[in-house]
């Protein structure tokens, strides 16, 4: 499986990762090798097989609509790298 630097760049952008050229080349090679290995799944005929997304068959886990006390403003903001009043502060968002 060939993985190009351009492929790596596209994925890195989606994942919000900034990679150096060296890292891009390294990842292209390593991801290519891993994806090459993964190709072996194609040997298996999986027509009509239902995909499994949960390890244990369960359904309908609910909670009732009852208000729980919040953790409180100070606890919510305690780990914020930057805050402004009661808000988490981030660089300006342009819409």
């Amino acid at each position: 499986m060939e993985m190009t630097v351009t492929d790596v760049e596209y994925v890195a952008r989606l994942a919000r990762l900034e990679l150096s050229l060296k890292e891009k080349e390294l990842f292209a090679g390593q991801m290519g090798a891993i994806l090459g290995y993964v190709e072996k799944l194609k040997e298996l005929n999986t027509d009509g097989i239902v995909p499994t997304s949960h390890a244990v068959p369960m359904e309908n886990s609910f909670r009732e609509d009852i208000v729980f006390s919040p953790i409180g403003l100070e606890k919510a903001l305690a780990n914020a790298p930057d805050r402004a009043g009661s808000f988490f502060a981030v660089p300006k968002v342009i819409e």
Binding site: A84, G85, F87, F88, A89, V90, P91
Partner: peptide, 18 residues
């Protein structure tokens, strides 16, 4: 919700209210 330009803090950033 994002809030712009009405923050009590410094700078011209945006605020996040969850």
């Amino acid at each position: 919700k994002l809030v712009h330009g009405e923050l009590s803090g410094p700078g011209d950033g945006s605020g996040v209210d969850l």
